[in-house]
Every structure is written in C-alpha cells, then in structure tokens.
C-alpha cells in the first residue's frame, strides 16, 4: 500500500533545507536579506517544481537524471558536515571516518523511505525551531542594534551563494514528491527561511560583521553566548546538534530521491523483487 505523505510532514521536510544552511553561512550585514530572499525564491521555484512532479516522474530518463542530480547536494552536505565536526570537536579524528559515520547514519535513516523521513522531519523541525528561538531569546540582551545594516550591493551575490547551496536540494526534493504538495513545499521553505534569516540577524547584531568575519562558523559561535546562568556557557553544541539533524534529514530524503528509480515505492525503500509486486 502506498502511504500518504501529509502536507504537514512535507512542509517540515522542506523547512529542514534552509535550517541546515545555518551552520555554514557567514554573517555579513547582507545575510539576513540574502537568506530571506533565497528562501523565498526557492519556495517559488519548488512550488512550481512540485506541480511539475507528476509529469516529471512519468519519464524514466528524467527520474534517472534527477537521481544523479541529487548526488551533488548529498555529497556536499556530507562533506561539509564532516568538515564542521572535524573543525569544531573531533580535530584528531580523520575526516573520512567522520564522513563515513555520517553516511551510515544517512543511509540508516533513508531506508525508512521518503514518507517516513518526512514524518521524522516534523519533530526535528520543531526541535530545531525551538532551539533557534531559545538561543535567540537568551542573547537578546547582548545584541547591539548599531550593527544593523541596510541592504547593499553585495546582496545579489550573497543571495546567489545561498541559492547555489539551497536550490539543488530543494528542487530535487520537490520534483520527487509523491503528491501535489506545492503549498507545503512553499510553506516549509518560507518558515525555514524565516528562522534562517532570524538567526543570521541575531549573529550580526550580537557579534557585528567584523568579528563574525573572523569566525569559520559565526552562527554557531554566536550561539555559544547564550547561557542560562552559569549553565551551558559555550553551549554551541546544543545549537549545532538539531541543525546537524536537519542536515541529516535532508541527506536522508535526498538519498531516497537518489534511490527512487530502484525502489518503486515511496513508502519504504525496498530494493528486492517484493517491491515490484
């Protein structure tokens, strides 16, 4: 039986995409606008992509092309997650071992199928949203409105950079949706994009653009300034874990897209002959 992918799950799955960009995006004065703009463009493109999905899926060639295309965001995601862990906590571990363990986790999650990944995305998206908001609230008193920047000439370039990372994954997913979920895709990307922009704003107002430019992961470092009394000072990891889970969800969903031509089922990935029955 083909199971239904509910709009709310679909929206959560798409919300993971902008959220998983947060850790790696620099915080210049333009990032707030660029994040919002890129997410909005993505939402529009994906809404269109989701409408095209049924037609797209009728062609085996296009499906294969999409599967190959999804390789790119998967590989970049795994690589940047591995690098992030290597640069922040596990500097003594070989990079390949970190990427390997991330790949294993991704595949384990992907075997559940696209529907279950989307179902799983719902609590993860809520968790990430809650952590982002809590982190923001805890640092409000330290923010300096003077660090605010108006949109400038660097905005198109930054928007393009974010789009380059966000759009391939979003497009691959929207074209693989089992049902017409264009509204859900747009809602998810918009909600995720709003949180993305908010956190970029927090980093800019907190650290300032110059300090942020010094840091390899400014949004991550800024989260370290959120503390509850003497507890969780330097607590970036509490911020990073849900965001990495978002990225894991994104990789798992894209892996489902990658394996879609083999699986014949949106529900649970089955490579055996049983799936064709």
């Amino acid at each position: 039986m083909r199971e239904r992918l509910f709009p709310r799950w679909g929206a959560a799955l798409f919300a993971l995409l902008p959220l998983s960009e947060i850790l790696y995006t620099p915080a210049t004065g333009q990032t707030v606008y660029a994040a919002a703009l890129a997410s909005l463009i993505c939402a529009l493109v994906c809404a269109g992509g989701a409408r095209l999905a049924p037609a797209w899926q009728r062609s085996h060639v296009l499906q294969w092309l999409l599967a190959l295309f999804s390789l790119w965001p998967i590989v970049t995601s795994l690589a940047r997650m591995g690098l992030f862990l290597h640069n922040t906590v596990f500097s003594t571990r070989p990079l390949w071992s970190l990427i390997l363990i991330l790949t294993v986790c991704t595949l384990l999650a992907a075997t559940a199928g696209l529907n279950r990944c989307a179902m799983w995305a719902l609590p993860i998206a809520w968790l990430a949203g809650a952590v982002i908001l809590l982190s923001g609230v805890l640092t409000v008193s330290q923010m300096q409105p003077a660090h605010w920047h108006m949109p400038g000439s660097a905005l198109p370039r930054e928007t393009g950079q974010i789009l380059l990372r966000l759009l391939p994954a979003a497009l691959a997913l929207s074209l693989s949706l089992p049902e017409r979920l264009s509204g859900a895709a747009a809602r998810g990307l918009s909600a995720g994009g709003a949180l993305f922009a908010l956190i970029a704003l927090r980093t800019t107002l907190l650290l300032g653009t110059h300090t942020a430019a010094l840091l390899p992961y400014p949004n991550f470092s800024a989260a370290g300034l959120a503390a509850i009394g003497d507890f969780a000072r330097h607590g970036e990891v509490f911020f990073a874990v849900p965001l990495l889970l978002c990225e894991l969800g994104r990789c798992a969903a894209l892996s489902c897209v990658l394996l879609l031509p083999f699986s014949h089922s949106y529900g649970v990935l089955r490579l055996s002959r049983r799936a064709k029955q």
């Binding site: 862990l85 990891v237 990073a240 874990v241 990495l244």
Partner: peptide, 8 residues
C-alpha cells in the same frame, strides 16, 4: 561522538 553522537 559526544553530544553529536547522542543526537544522531
């Protein structure tokens, strides 16, 4: 893998 491992 620390808290990352717990999260995963």
């Amino acid at each position: 893998y620390g808290l990352y491992g717990v999260g995963f």
